[in-house]
């Protein structure tokens, strides 16, 4: 790290404070000991369903695949009373197909953009991608930050780029992916959260990861970001929303993340304007648990549509 990068980090840490990794992990371990039963479990599960950004981000995505994803998002399971998911999350080329299928429902269309997942394209190209996704009807844009610039201490560059994406978004909601696994430390995650929040609008999101690297959302990095959101809110009054993405596969995990929200940011963040899960397999596990609460029995995975696993 060059001297100036070092100085930039020192200044930023001094301004926003640091994080003790051992302490964070102890704190989040307590969320995992909460015992959520009966009605409160059902409430949590349904709430989690409403927060899912049902995602498909594969090279092999087709309009057909996106159509069935949209159908799943609108009506996740027949026979039981479950809400729609918050959104579907797709690549820019799929936005117009998705938009067609969700028309007239509450399901929003989110598109990753800005040369997702690496962000390694010229800014002009990244902005053009955002504008085209918005023009195709994307309600939400999931961008990646310039991790290279961040790690070399060029914080104003990171913020300028986010600011330009905000502009390109128009009235669409923006989610800023920090890609926590590439930032490595909790100190950096907190720092990047602040850099992003300082140029975001109320209810824009910060998001943990792309799901395309080795490590994704954890209770630890979720907690560091929730605490950053809380501190920023106290400082400015601007509420920023949060989206952990990748790695949350089970209903049990989702409930633990929601407990973290409940105990860190409180009731006003327990809705899908302020909190989302970026996930695909999570939805069916949530449905399976909801069905279990209703009937008392676990159904085989193949009773749920779009199940990835089978016997």
């Amino acid at each position: 790290m060059s001297t100036s990068a070092h100085a930039a980090f020192r200044r930023l840490f001094h301004e926003i404070g640091t994080v003790d990794a051992v302490g964070v992990e102890e704190r989040v371990a307590k969320f995992a000991t909460r015992s959520i039963k009966k009605k409160s479990k059902l409430f949590g599960l349904k709430l989690a369903v409403t927060m899912v950004d049902l995602t498909t981000l594969e090279g092999k995505d087709t309009p057909g695949k996106v159509a069935s994803l949209c159908q799943k998002a609108i009506a996740p399971h027949e026979g039981i009373d479950v809400p729609s998911t918050a959104a579907v999350c797709v690549y820019p080329a799929m936005v117009k197909h998705a938009k067609k299928h969700v028309a007239g429902t509450s399901v929003r269309v989110a598109s990753v953009a800005t040369a997702f997942p690496s962000g390694q394209a010229p800014l002009k190209t990244r902005l053009a991608e955002v504008r085209s996704a918005v023009a195709d009807g994307a309600d939400e844009i999931d961008m990646v930050i310039n991790r290279g610039a961040f790690l070399s201490g060029e914080f104003s560059l990171v913020q300028d780029e986010i600011r330009q994406v905000v502009e390109a978004c128009g009235s669409s909601t923006l989610k800023v992916i920090l890609e926590t696994s590439e930032l490595e430390t909790y100190d950096n995650i907190r720092a990047a959260s602040f850099l992003a929040m300082q140029v975001l609008r109320p209810n824009d999101f910060i998001k943990t990861s792309t799901g395309k690297t080795s490590a994704n959302a954890t209770l630890g990095n979720n907690q560091v970001m929730l605490e950053a959101i809380r501190d920023f809110y106290f400082e400015t009054g601007i509420p920023i929303a949060m989206k952990p993405a990748g790695g949350i596969r089970t209903a049990k995990q989702a409930l633990q993340f929601l407990i973290a929200v409940k105990e860190t940011l409180g009731d006003e963040w327990l809705n899908n304007q302020r909190y989302r899960f970026g996930a695909s397999t999570l939805l069916n596990d949530l449905l399976r648990q909801i069905e279990k609460e209703r009937s008392g029995n676990y159904q085989a995975p193949y009773y749920f549509s779009e199940a990835a696993e089978s016997y």
């Binding site: 909460r34 015992s35 959520i36 039963k37 009966k38 009605k39 409160s40 479990k41 409430f43 949590g44 709430l47 409403t50 927060m51 809400p83 729609s84 918050a86 509450s106 929003r108 309600d139 009235s171 909601t173 609008r201 109320p202 209810n203 809380r230 809110y233 106290f234 009054g237 509420p239 929303a241 929601l258 409940k262 105990e263 940011l265 409180g266 009731d267 006003e268 327990l270 809705n271 899908n272 304007q273």
Partner: peptide, 29 residues
């Protein structure tokens, strides 16, 4: 609230209080 669209300009609250209420109350365990 879950299905409402986010509004871009949220009204600023005078006090920046977090609400730790009973929206999601835990059942006895």
């Amino acid at each position: 609230r879950a299905t409402a669209r986010p509004s871009v300009a949220q009204p600023r609250k005078s006090s920046r209080e977090l609400i730790f209420g009973d929206l999601w109350e835990f059942d006895p365990a």
